[in-house]
Structure formats: structure tokens, C-alpha cells
Amino acid sequence: MKKIFSGIKTNAFWKNSLLIVLGSLITAVSISVFMVPYKIAPGGVSGIATVIYYLTSQKFPVGAIMLVLNIPLFVFGFKFIGRKFIVRTFFSTILLSVFIDFLEPYTRYFVDNYLVKVEPTPSVPDLFLYSIFGGFLMGLGLGMVFKAGATTGGSDLAARIANHFIANLTMGQLIMIIDTAIIICATIAFNSFHLGMYAIITLYISSKVIDAVLEGVNFAKSVLIISDKSDEIAARIMDVMDRGVTALRGIGMYTGKDKNVLLCIVHRGQLQQLKEIIMELDSNSFIILTDIREVLGEGFKTYDGN
């Protein structure tokens, strides 16, 4: 039995390590190719490093600047945050910094020869595309790192530390405040509102992709059915669609009568068939639909530890 659990832990360790490595690499590509060359600074330590990189006439590598900026956060982090989390985050932070500086000459060659080499001015529409693709890749990479139970340092780690001192603000609010402040500073430093707006676009897209990686895309629907013919509807759904149905006890407050409220989870492709079954048996029924990010269980997906 111990060997079985040991094997599970080992597999989880290597899976999380692989996610951290790949996620850090993808994030490094997004920063090196789509952000730093065009002065797009979407918050976080990478945003501060981009500003410093240009204010110092590109004397210091972006990855090295990020690593130096993260050191004080790790010093405080060891005191307030769990050891396992901080070790994983330290590992991913070092990887990200190394990847960025290692890839710098290759990404510079790619930018110079395959991307339109432009100055980031308001008249250049290409920056909009770069902010979109940069945000997508950054969100994908960070989402993989977060899924492995780590972060790449920066605003997320700073927010976790700040949360110990400012308990009335949530983690999400603290991250938003920190990233917004960094974007404002970058806007002032580069003297361009347009670059600030591109950074906001990148940050928004990145956050949405992170949510999709962590929670899954909207691939299922939760359906609540209120009907006087709940038994017939449930039987038809289970027989025709082979989907499970759960009856929740409810009371009609207007009539005072007990009734069953049916709960059913279906794939998006089955939604139309479900509606037709319900309307055929009771055209006066109420149907409430909600999006489901992720469903674990028979007929959907199994829990894999992440």
C-alpha cells in the first residue's frame, strides 16, 4: 500500500515539475517576443523589469532584473507562506528568468527578421496583435505554473504577502491594485497612454486564459427543471439521453405545494435534445441553465490531482 501511494506522489511530482518547466518557458517566450521589444508592461515583476530595462538603456538583462526584484519577495514569503509553495515558486521564478535571458538573442533575431520591426507609436496597429498573442501565451504559461501549485513570483507573491497585513482586501483585489499601479508607472515612464492601454489588453487576456487553464472552458451546462411532471421528465432523460438526474425537494411558495426540482448536467451538444424532451412533456415547465467550468465524475472527467 505504501508503494502505491509513493508511486502516486512521485507521478504527481514529475507532472507538476513538467508543468512548471513548460509554463515558465511559454511565459518567457511571451515576454521576450511580444512584450519587451515593444515596451508592453502588463503589470507584475516583468512589467517593472521592462521599464527598468529601457530606463537603463538596456544595460541589464530583463531576466536578471526580474530575479533581483523577486528576492525581497521571497525573503518575506518564507515567513508568511507555506514552504512547499515558496519552494515551487522559487524554482519557477529562476526558470523564467533564465529562459528569458537565454532566449533573448534568439527572440531578438526572430523579432528582427519575422515580425514587423516597428517603433511602438499610436499609428502602429501591429502592437494590438502583439498584445493579444502575448497575453494569450502569458496566460497559458502562467496557468500551467499555477496548476502545478506555484507562481512565477511578482504581483501574485506580493499580493499573498500583503494579504497578511491588509486582510480586508481579497487576493484578486490586491493583485489588481498592484498590476494597475505598475501599468500606470510604465505609462508615465514611456510617456504613452497607448502603451498603457495595450498593457491592459494583455493583462485582461492573460487573466481570462489563466482562468480557462485552471477551471476549464465552458464545456457543460447545469440545468434546473421545475415542473409538475418531474417524474416523467426524469425518466425520459435517463432512458433517452442516458444522463443522471437528481431530484431536489422544493416548495412552490405561491401554491404551497411540495415539488421536485430536477438537476441535470449535460454536455453542450445535448442541450437542444434536453430542451425538446422537457417541452414535449410539459410546455409550462421552468428551465434554468448555467455554465459549468469543470465537471468531475462519471460521464465527464476523472480527478487527476490537479
Rank of each mutant, 00 (worst) to 15 (best):
P61T: 04
V116N: 09
L69E: 05
V245S: 08
M138K: 12
L22P: 03
L22A: 15
F193C: 00
F74E: 08
G250T: 10
G305F: 06
G216T: 00
L96T: 08
S30Y: 07
V295I: 03
T246I: 05
P61S: 06
G305Y: 12
I26K: 07
F5K: 15
G154D: 00
L55I: 04
T107S: 13
K257H: 11
N306E: 09
D156W: 05
F219W: 00
M279G: 00
T170V: 12
E215Q: 08
R249C: 02
P120N: 03
K208P: 02
E232F: 04
D242M: 06
L129S: 12
F99E: 09
G47F: 13
F90T: 06
D211C: 07
L140Y: 02
L263C: 08
I161D: 04
S30P: 07
R293P: 02
F80Y: 15
F13L: 01
M138Y: 12
G305T: 06
L67P: 00
R108K: 03
G244K: 12
K9L: 06
K79M: 04
H194Q: 11
G149A: 00
G47T: 04
L22Q: 11
V68E: 00
I178M: 08
G23T: 03
E298R: 14
A212G: 08
A64P: 05
P125D: 11
A150C: 02
V98K: 14
L18C: 11
R268G: 14
T56H: 04
M66L: 07
A212H: 05
K3N: 07
Y53W: 08
I52V: 07
R108Y: 02
I175V: 15
D258H: 10
F13H: 01
L281S: 05
R160M: 07
V29S: 04
V68N: 03
G63A: 10
I251A: 09
I188K: 15
L281I: 11
F110H: 03
G154V: 00
Y254P: 14
E298K: 15
W14S: 00
I26C: 07
V118S: 13
L224A: 11
P37K: 14
T170D: 14
N11Y: 15
V111D: 09
G256F: 04
I188Q: 13
T187W: 03
S222I: 04
Y53P: 09
Y204A: 06
N168F: 14
M279L: 03
G252W: 07
A235F: 06
T202A: 15
I226P: 10
R108C: 01
V29H: 01
Y38P: 07
K257D: 14
F193T: 01
T56V: 07
L195M: 11
T202Y: 03
